[in-house]
Nucleic acid binder design. Structure first.
Lengths: 195, 195
DNA sequence: GACAGCCGTTCCGTTTACGGAACGAATGTC
DNA sequence: GACATTCGTTCCGTAAACGGAACGGCTGTC
């Protein structure tokens, strides 16, 4: 996931390899199915597809049609977007990020990213406008992140938050790559909350 | 957590209709192609698929395979998630949730949701398998969530986490709807094949 | 006008994803 | 023990998605 097949518009992709993606989809589907405590046979029955189809799909030995994928994920109660790899990849000097969702609420706008930092990397970001905060949850590895003069440390499953209206840094600690989600909150200016 | 016990053998999902989705995908692809000023013939050439395939895909008269869809969207510089529907998946008695992404890391699987709770609502979820944790960040409103016997409170921009291997609840405080993101972490079970 | 080039669609033989059935393994019942 | 049930995988005939080629339509060149 977040595999480097960085999708740059215009640039000639050196060789798209859907094969490196398809098995992941199968794994995600199997994971979702097992979380629900459903057997392969039963999911196939419910979704109205053959067991052979579902078996091959989960094992990545088939190249499913959109309809097959749709009926299976629908039975699992998730959308297609939940199992396919997501959109625009953004690059910093060290970090790779995928914008999962951007949206606005009353009083603030949000961007939700999934981030990947290679082991040994450091990323520095300039200050955001006043009032902007970042909320970071680490999935794997250990990351030291936050204001440049007072960073915080988070390991797998941990969470840190800071005001990002000052320069801030991200540094990978240890030998593992870091995977994390980052929520950036942009408060609306000249507008009081609760209005 | 969310997808409650509504996965009973008898319970039938209200008729999945992939047909209502497939033509949309074709329209989105055609739109993306035209935005880039590329002809159908040229996109087919670049992506290495037949013109017949792309024509049928854009017109919704074919049921494309995942590989076809992947190579085409990759050439357009977008991910698959850009053309498939993010399922407006609704679970639970009170909450509405959209699974933004499901993925695996070494040692654990993750599901990242975006949640919406209407004012005044309460949601109860049964216990998850041992070791599962939930990580919730509130965007708007105030939510009281966590283990049923010891819930925590989070307002806008705040974060709470808890072990979800016991029954847990979500209760909206105050008069504002609650928007939040929820990360659920499933540690890998011991019997699982290595990854 | 004749021709060349590209457009998107349609035709058609080949490839392959499909579902049903058969398979061995694992588990439950008496 | 014998037997039934369910598991996930594999085999196989059929249906359909695939790429190549041919099609009519449109545009620009001489």
């Amino acid at each position: 996931m977040l595999h480097d097949s960085s999708m740059k518009p215009g640039a000639q992709n050196p060789r798209p390899t859907p094969d490196s993606d398809t098995p992941d989809i199968g794994r995600r589907i199997r994971r979702l199915r097992e979380e629900r405590g459903i057997s392969l046979s039963e999911l196939a029955r419910r979704a109205g597809v053959g067991k052979a189809t579902l078996s091959g799909l989960e094992n990545g030995t088939r190249n499913p049609t959109l309809e097959t994928l749709w009926t299976v994920t629908a039975q699992l109660g998730v959308g297609l977007a939940a199992v396919v790899d997501t959109g625009p990849v953004v690059h910093g000097t060290a970090v790779q990020g995928v914008l999962l969702q951007a949206f606005e609420e009353e009083g603030a706008a949000y961007e939700l990213y999934r981030l990947f930092f290679p082991t040994g990397s450091t990323q520095t970001s300039p200050a955001h406008p006043e009032g902007v905060t970042e909320h970071l949850t680490v999935f794997a590895g250990t990351l030291r992140a936050g204001p440049a003069d007072a960073p915080l440390t988070a390991g797998p499953g941990e969470y840190v938050t800071w005001r990002s209206d000052v320069p801030h840094t991200y540094t990978v600690l240890g030998e593992h790559d870091v995977h994390a989600s980052l929520l950036i909150r942009y408060p609306r200016r000249r507008s009081e909350p609760g209005g």
